[in-house]
């Protein structure tokens, strides 16, 4: 069964094709990486998958069910968790409260006016924070966290509704090298233990080639290559447009 099936997705902004006929599938319990230069359309692609942006053309299926144009909150209820390139957390709350809000939403208790929210789902929240290694910072104000910790908090929040698909936009940006490896190992464990499928974008090629099952390359809105990490690494076109280095040494000669 495929977790996500994406067909001929297109999106233009002011006449510019940000995403141009992108089609791919995300298999169950697969760790799929989407790479490409900045501005290639990765974030737009992500935003269409979780419903933040409505595609001009194309369909998105989640376990066979058409979710094209479904708003983010409904996509989430269908079991799609999301982390953002620029972390989106609740700055006026503690780390624990951030997770509690997600849990309250998952259990559909956010309309309640009477109970004290801080006392609800503490254990579940703690368990999720423990999972991402943030348990010791549970009481801290979210606004005082380091960037890498915010990323881990986002992961805990994204896991609150026991998602079947995780969309992670540059999950390790801003983290120290060891932290990156740890986070990706953790993600791989979650994929294995909970049967989650993960699609992620990333600029760190160590992370991509070290952890992804499969890699897709996006350039100027189009998918230009796709395959196992070693295939993509060896692809001449990908080296040219993204992995680079060869092109730059050419500049030395002309300068």
């Amino acid at each position: 069964m495929t977790a996500l099936q994406v067909d001929t997705l297109c999106k233009s902004f002011g006449g510019v094709r940000a995403v141009d006929e992108v089609s791919f599938t995300l298999g169950e319990t697969e760790l799929l990486a989407l790479i490409g230069p900045n501005g290639a359309g990765k974030s737009t692609c992500f935003n269409m998958l979780n419903g933040q942006i409505r595609p001009d053309v194309g369909t998105i299926r989640l376990f066979g069910r058409d979710i094209t144009g479904t708003p983010p909150r409904a996509v989430w209820r269908l079991g799609v968790g999301r982390t953002f390139q620029i972390t989106a957390t609740f700055g006026s709350m503690t780390v624990m409260e951030n997770v509690q809000v997600a849990l309250l939403s998952h259990h559909r208790r956010l309309r309640a006016l009477i109970p004290y929210a801080g006392a609800l789902y503490r254990d579940e929240a703690m368990a999720l924070l423990d999972l991402v290694g943030m348990a010791d910072q549970a009481a801290r104000a979210c606004g005082t966290l380091a960037y890498g910790d915010l990323k881990r908090l986002e992961l805990a929040v994204a896991l609150a509704n026991e998602p079947r698909v995780l969309l992670m936009d540059e999950p390790t940006a801003g983290m120290a090298p060891q932290e990156r490896v740890q986070l990706m190992r953790l993600t791989a464990d979650i994929v294995r233990d909970k049967g989650v499928s993960v699609l992620f974008t990333e600029h760190d090629m160590d992370v991509v080639f070290g952890h992804a099952d499969r890699v897709m390359v996006l350039d100027r809105g189009r998918l230009v290559a796709e395959g196992t990490p070693s295939e993509v690494r060896a692809n001449a076109e990908v080296q040219q447009i993204y992995l680079g280095s060869g092109a730059l040494y050419g500049a030395e000669a002309s300068a």
Binding site: P72, R73, A74, R82, F84, A88, M93, S105
Partner: peptide, 17 residues
């Protein structure tokens, strides 16, 4: 908390339902 969540980050609030 839901109200504050929507104020702090609409993106995140919508992304958690």
């Amino acid at each position: 908390y839901a109200v504050r969540a929507c104020r702090d980050s609409t993106t995140r609030a919508e992304a958690i339902g």
